[in-house]
């Protein structure tokens, strides 16, 4: 085991990889614990991980942490699904027909570079401080990115596949459903997974600005009283949700595209 991981460009078994990953995390946590306990840094800046875990437990048992997580997840998924439901057909049409692509591409490219936080005030003027604002901001952050990714996935469908289908008697519609969608499938699902991750980034911004629920709100209110362990616990929860979702989507990807 030692040899293979020390070899230049060597390979390691899945078990070894996993063990090394866990070991590294444990080492980092232990170092952190020691540094924090010795109070090299004031505890309100760097609480030890044990305190963070304790805070996590208190928050889960007495402060509705699960409910806040659920609210946040719901916001992310609603906004993400709306963005995906719009971006997939529009992106496909953009790269398939120039009449759709040529007018939309410059506009989307421009909006894509607008920072989401800069649009928070406008969003509040338009939608108030309710759920609409949060969904809008999340949608804003994902739709314009995703639509270009989808268009690119479609563009990268090998032209040979399209021409083969035509010479086998398919019509444009059938080429779209039977060939283009199938061919872009793996990349599309990958891009959806990545964009979902970005959605979580914007969630915190949306919830910090205008919310009385959700993980962003939890983190932001804990900060007000300098409850650093709670702040860290909130961040950890977002990280865990992200990690689990990502792994689930990767597993789904493997199941859906066994031929790869």
């Amino acid at each position: 085991m030692m040899r293979e991981v020390l070899t230049f460009r060597g390979k390691a078994t899945a078990g070894t990889e996993f063990a090394l990953g866990v070991a590294a995390a444990v080492v980092v946590l232990l170092l952190w614990e020691v540094v924090a306990r010795l109070e090299f840094v004031a505890p309100q800046f760097l609480p030890p991980p044990s305190k963070v875990i304790a805070a996590l437990w208190t928050m889960a048992t007495t402060q509705h942490l699960l409910w806040h997580s659920l609210i946040s997840s719901l916001r992310v998924w609603v906004a993400f699904l709306i963005a995906a439901a719009m971006a997939i057909p529009i992106g496909i049409l953009m790269s398939s027909y120039r009449i759709v692509g040529a007018p939309l591409e410059p506009m989307i490219d421009f909006i894509r570079y607008l920072p989401v936080p800069a649009l928070v005030p406008l969003s509040i003027i338009w939608f108030g401080v309710g759920e609409e604002t949060k969904i809008f901001l999340l949608w804003l952050g994902t739709f314009f990115q995703l639509v270009l990714l989808v268009a690119d996935d479609m563009r990268r469908v090998p032209h040979e596949y399209v021409e083969i289908a035509f010479t086998l008697g398919a019509r444009p519609r059938q080429v779209m459903t039977d060939v283009a969608l199938r061919s872009m499938g793996p990349n599309l699902v990958d891009n959806l997974r990545i964009t979902l991750g970005w959605c979580w980034t914007y969630l915190v911004i949306a919830e910090i600005v205008a919310a009385d629920s959700g993980l962003g709100f939890v983190i932001w209110s804990a900060r007000r009283y300098v409850k650093t362990p709670e702040v860290m616990a909130g961040v950890v929860v977002i990280g865990l949700i992200g990690l689990i979702t990502d792994q689930l989507l990767r597993a789904l990807h493997r199941r859906m595209f066994r031929y790869l």
Partner: peptide, 18 residues
């Protein structure tokens, strides 16, 4: 235009991977 009476065989991307 293209139809099934004349089929193409390309050098690459010749079969559908899925």
């Amino acid at each position: 235009g293209p139809d099934r009476r004349r089929g193409m065989v390309f050098q690459s991307y010749s079969s559908f991977p899925w």
